[in-house]
Amino acid sequence: MSVRALLEPVTGRAGPATLSAASSWQQGRTLYGGASALIAYTMAKRAFPDLPPLRAAQIGFVAPIGSKVELAAEIMREGRNVTQVRSEIHCEGKLALTAFWLFGAEREPNAIHPASQVQDWPGAPEAFEPLSLERGPSFLKENFEMRRAQESSGPGEPVVRRWFRLVERDALDPVSAMILLGDTLPPGAMRRMQRQGPISSINWSLNLLEPNPTTRDGWWLGETRSEHADHGYSSERLSMWNTNGVQVISGLQSVAIFG
C-alpha cells in the first residue's frame, strides 16, 4: 500500500479513523515509527493548513498502533512568529503516540552558523549497489530504495549509514518525506549488540535545519550513531544530509535494546 493510501483517512478533523493501509506498514506489532509520526504531522497540517514552516518536533512512541485509531490536533500556543501544535494518536482507547510540533515563520537572522559538512563523505548513492530489503518488513521493499553508505559492516563502531529514498518520490512534500524516512535506519548500537534481539524506538526529537530541503533524485543520506548504550537502552544521534552533503535534520532518539 502506498503512502498516499496510508494518509488518505487523515482529514484534519478530530475523531475516529480507520487506517486501511496500516497492515502494509507494520513493523512487528505496531505501525512503523516514521509512518506513525507522519500521520501525526499530517493531522496537524491538515487541521491547521496555514501554519508556518516546521522547525522542530518531539515525538513519543507510547504504545502499539493498529488500524483503528482516534486522531487529535490542538494549537497549544500561537505567537507572532511561532506556533506550537500537539497532535495525538489513540488506539484501543489509550494514548499511542504524542507529538509536539514547533512551526516558525522566518525572521531576519541575527546569527549565522552553517551546519558542518558530513564527515567521511561516502560518495554519491549511485556509487553503491542497491541493498536487498527482502528480509525487512514488507513496507520497506515496497516503498523504499536503500544503498549502503559505509564500507564497514557487522560488529564495529556503532554507526549505521545508508542512502535512501521513497519509490513514490512525488507522493509527499520534502518535509513529510523526511519525517517518514527519518526513523528508517536501525540504531547504531545494533553493531555493538552481543546477540540478536528486538529493538524499539521510544522517542524522537528532531530539529529541521532547512525549512524547504532539496536533494537530487530524492536521495537522502541518513546516519544513526549510538552515543551511549547500556542497561537495555541506547542514546542515538540521528542525522540526515542531502546529496550535496548539506545537513537537513539533527535529532536524538532513545531506543530500547531487548534480548
Rank of each mutant, 00 (worst) to 15 (best):
A37H: 12
L38Q: 00
L38Y: 00
I39A: 06
I39N: 01
Y41Q: 09
T42H: 01
T42C: 08
M43R: 04
M43E: 12
M43S: 11
K45V: 13
R46E: 06
P49C: 11
D50N: 15
D50S: 11
L51M: 02
L51Q: 12
P52F: 06
P52I: 05
P53N: 13
L54W: 05
R55V: 12
R55W: 01
A56F: 06
A57H: 09
A57C: 15
Q58D: 09
Q58T: 11
I59F: 06
F61P: 13
A63Q: 11
A63P: 01
A63Y: 04
P64L: 15
I65R: 00
I65S: 07
I65V: 15
G66M: 02
G66T: 10
G66R: 10
G66C: 07
G66P: 11
S67M: 14
K68E: 15
E70L: 02
E70R: 13
E70S: 08
L71T: 03
L71H: 05
L71E: 11
A72P: 03
A73R: 04
I75T: 09
I75D: 00
I75F: 05
M76Q: 10
M76G: 07
M76S: 10
E78Q: 14
R80K: 07
R80H: 11
N81V: 10
N81Q: 15
V82N: 01
T83N: 01
T83Y: 00
R86E: 10
E88N: 10
E88S: 14
I89E: 09
H90R: 10
C91V: 13
C91R: 05
G93N: 02
G93E: 09
K94P: 09
K94I: 12
L95M: 09
A96R: 07
A96L: 09
L97M: 11
L97P: 03
A99F: 03
F100Y: 14
F100L: 15
F103W: 08
E106F: 01
E106Y: 05
